[in-house]
Design a protein around this nucleic acid. Structure first.
Lengths: 189, 189
DNA sequence: AGCAAAAATTAAGCTGGTTTAAGAAAGTTA
DNA sequence: TAACTTTCTTAAACCAGCTTAATTTTTGCT
């Protein structure tokens, strides 16, 4: 069962019975996506929260020149959506697309509410996830505001070597906030 | 009572009895800080989560050239700490200082755990706060990666005009990721 | 009010990183 | 294995934003 991935993840944060856990996963839909397939469209109401079982997604937007810019990746055990738009049930500022063939759980906003109402312990689970994600975003902002683009790349490669291998360079460049050309030049050294 | 500020804020997210609310605020200490007074030191274990009753705090670090760089502000009704260090009870990557004379509630990590255990509804409160904060951080990363420094400033001034008046320009410049000199040049136009 | 310190402005010179454009390599499809 | 498409590389010209440094304005203190 592929849903074991989520159950295992929840169990690292909470103590829940097997019955509860198997009830919980019923709130989710499981779907597979091919490389470059779209999961969420900007301008549409953001009604889905995603959990990656296998594969890799990215959250991106299109800048004023028509370039795709990646703001966040999500690999196995990561949650992803436009959280602000999801919480307010507004239209999304971002697109979500599969970077590679992926297996993904999703939950609608109303099911998410139901899940949290029925299993209040899940509030703790998500509180912990978001507390950490927000903290990590602040540290990321710190790096952006203190390191040169070259240092940002080397730091990221040291911290996540396997990830640098995994995603195409032009997506990595966009995530790190530099041009593919400059990233290529940095790597040459 | 100054604690009403927190109570009022919690009530916008949860339904709780007055008895519960007044028990909750007992978990917090209230303290006043003068302008430039330090609340949290980098390199020290991060054992406090802060809530601003009145005034303004900022989360900053010192870059390799010895410059103070602001990553986040917190005004009335905002929570602030180095969330990653707080959750893991590690030493902080950041300093926290009062930007102006401020009145602040604080809670230690162990009291925070106790509070969440005793009042599980508070999990929902913090889940919501962090979900929003993380979403906002992603949108902020989007702006950083798509707008010129000039556009970043004008956008921020349009969105938060009163805030631009409130904090010193050199802190605002640092928060927006540009030099005070360049910000000054932009404003001249 | 008067002094000292902190913050903001101005301007010139400089550089890290972008833009543009073209070619090479790697992946995909039939 | 050939043709097409996507991704990566290279190099030169360019510029947004930084650095430096000197001056002015504002703030805080007694």
């Amino acid at each position: 069962m592929t849903e074991r991935t989520l159950i295992t993840h929840i169990k690292t944060y909470l103590t829940l019975s097997e019955e509860e856990l198997s009830e919980i996963v019923l709130f989710f839909d499981c779907q597979s996506y091919n490389k470059k397939e779209t999961l969420l469209l900007a301008e549409k109401r953001c009604d889905k929260l995603f959990f990656v079982i296998k594969g890799c997604l990215h959250l991106y937007f299109i800048d004023c020149l028509g370039n795709q810019k990646t703001t966040q990746f999500a690999i196995e055990n990561w949650w992803l959506t436009d959280f602000l738009a999801f919480q307010n049930q507004k239209q999304s500022n971002f697109y979500i697309e599969a970077v590679e063939k992926s297996k993904v759980l999703s939950i609608s906003f109303s099911k998410y509410q139901e899940l949290l109402d029925k299993f209040p312990k899940m509030e703790k689970y998500f509180r912990t996830i978001y507390e950490r994600a927000y903290g990590a975003a602040l540290v990321r902002l710190k790096y952006i505001n203190s390191l040169s683009k070259e240092e940002i790349f080397f730091r990221f490669r040291d911290d996540f070597p396997e990830f640098v291998q995994r995603v195409p360079q032009y997506l990595l460049a966009s995530f790190l906030g530099l041009t593919p050309e400059y990233l290529s030049e940095i790597k040459r050294k």
